[in-house]
Nucleic acid binder design. Structure first.
Lengths: 335, 335
DNA sequence: TAAGTATATGTTATCGTTACCATAATGTCA
DNA sequence: TGACATTATGGTAACGATAACATATACTTA
């Protein structure tokens, strides 16, 4: 039972065109007719057919959100921010998830084009191919990338300054007198993780500590048990670290488990800092962590899309997702 | 630059109808023409216009996912399951989030109707009004509810057997000899939480322990700090509990912090069980928790929608989201 | 050979909304 | 009293895909 404008027009004894004027609140409509139409809309429960509108207007009111799966699994917080920001501006968000496979992505991007999204947010740390971007360009779909950048391909990107965040955190640790600072990180296959490892190294260089290979543990994934194993390895070094920086809260949580298993106390026996600030306040004790300021992320993404829509040939822009350091007292001065 | 079937037809020197036959792989098409058309589709980068299809077919290929915000904040895992299941079946998922306000929901539901979703999944623990359901019914939109049920309103519902899960967990605790078993739960304003509290009480009755008001702590929210405060209160009882059941991992995490702050050890000094199994394996020690089996949830939702579409007047059906008990050894026999 | 069927292709009304165009009654100013 | 806005309303051709219908060969089979 689909009510359309024609039904409303009949009910209000007027024409489709006039109903359109009331709905869009433009043109001339007499008070009486307007009231009759409004009454008819309410009575019939008329809801505009979005497909017909999209077909006619070439604008769908939809924003696509393409998630290429990443191990660190924090993406849903970003998706959430995007959905909220889109909704706030009257857009609807369609979310699609791509397993890492690859060619499947092309299909999903075609679906996005098919439903004629007014903008596409890509959340990923693995590659979208140049051909895929070309496809999007052909359909004049504004695109913004989050987490991993594609600036060189002319795509506006919204990135975390992972390098700076880790560097600052490690400098903070060193400032408390620590000299043997370990790093537990994921495999630096992805740009994000490379930046973090690099930030750690830079910090050491900054404060004049020489890098020591044994203090860097790269795990195959971001699981708690990987963190635990990494910390175990660190503890069994001839001279173990007095502080540890983990590039994920899950890894830090594992490190904590390893420490407790050996009867160590936090932070007395080991200073520790996590990353993402998603688990850290739940641990015992709540630990320091680097968090992302997600409030503005959705809005920034929407702004970039809007800007790109208006000026499609503007050079690609990079914006920062800011970080904060949650100090919970788990980095203490070395005795 | 929008390529349509007419463009493909021109390029392949044939008619729109024949292009349609190739696209839908039905009717008769000669080998040569088919090849010409396929070549043209690839060359032009033709992508079907979904809006036009929806308009003509009255099917959008979209599933709506309406999230009415709940405090416990685990909803995104369910959304994720729904998105995956929808995608698996060739559907696209549009997600909308409703703040608890209320009337805003009507607007979102109208949007869903406007884009002509083929089915709507409602994830919420607060109310959708009968009028809103009536609206959906008028547009013949199949609906399935997750987390909170609306069986009495004829809506298929997918529910967690919270009552049984908590009851079983508490019985498990009691079986180890504990008699003073505390409960840390949220305010039972929502059905979900009521069920859990009720499950706890029932378990005590089952094993012949008399309920003791002081051992039940209801917190205003599900934050870690609320859990900590609740546990603090429990510890300051004249005779504190020897075991505690929390209805959220965050609450359990808080309880753990409170225990450590007093120098207690887990599980030697306090047996503990969490809920949701989302944080618990990251804690030190990893604690027992009740988890949800989310694998099948998306599929069940899709099945119910499909069923409802085929038989709109079938009586409302209830299905269970199963739970599991993750035993990590934090419930130990009472000495 | 007539009748029927399998193969192959093209024409066009329809879905619901929009926006441009036409029509016409009234009001206003030189 | 024309000329021209202003107000008010209605008709209809797109948008792109679909499927019903029309048409026309070639191939069987009675």
């Amino acid at each position: 039972m689909n009510i359309k404008m024609a039904d409303v027009a009949r009910e209000a004894q007027t024409s489709i065109a006039t109903v359109g004027r009331v709905i869009h609140n433009n043109g001339y409509v007499s008070k009486e007719v307007r009231e009759r139409i409004e009454k008819a809309i309410a009575a019939l429960g008329y809801v505009p057919n979005q497909s017909a509108r999209t077909l006619k207007n070439n604008r769908s009111g939809m924003i696509g959100c393409l998630v290429v799966e990443s191990d660190n699994g924090q993406y849903y917080r970003i998706v959430d921010a995007v959905i909220r920001a889109a909704q706030m501006r009257g857009f609807t968000c369609v979310t699609m998830e791509a397993p890492q496979s690859g060619d499947n992505q092309t299909q999903l991007i075609q679906s996005m084009i098919g439903i004629h999204v007014d903008g596409l947010v890509i959340i990923s740390n693995i590659g979208i191919t140049p051909e895929q971007f070309a496809l999007l360009k052909r359909f004049e779909t504004p695109v913004v990338a989050i987490e991993r950048g594609y600036l060189e391909q002319g795509i506006d990107s919204l990135l975390v300054r992972d390098f700076d965040a880790v560097r600052d955190a490690v400098i903070h640790i060193a400032a408390k007198g620590h000299r043997r600072i370990a790093l537990i990180a994921g495999e630096p296959n992805f740009d994000v993780e490379k930046q973090r490892v690099h930030g750690y190294c830079q910090a050491l260089a900054d404060v004049g500590i020489s890098e020591e290979e044994g203090l860097i543990r790269l795990t195959p994934d971001y699981t708690v048990s990987s963190g635990r194993k990494a910390m175990d390895k660190l503890f069994s070094l001839p001279s173990p670290p007095t502080a540890v920086m983990a590039t994920a809260d899950t890894l830090a949580a594992g490190a904590l488990q390893a420490a407790y298993a050996r009867g160590f106390r936090i932070p007395e026996d080991l200073s520790i800092v996590g990353y993402d600030d998603v688990l850290s306040q739940s641990l015992s004790p709540a630990i320091d962590s680097v968090g992302l300021v997600l409030e503005g992320v959705g809005d920034m993404a929407m702004e970039l899309l809007e800007q790109r829509r208006k000026t499609p040939d503007h050079p690609a822009e990079r914006r920062d997702i800011h970080t904060y350091y949650a100090d919970r007292g788990t980095v203490i001065p070395l005795l």
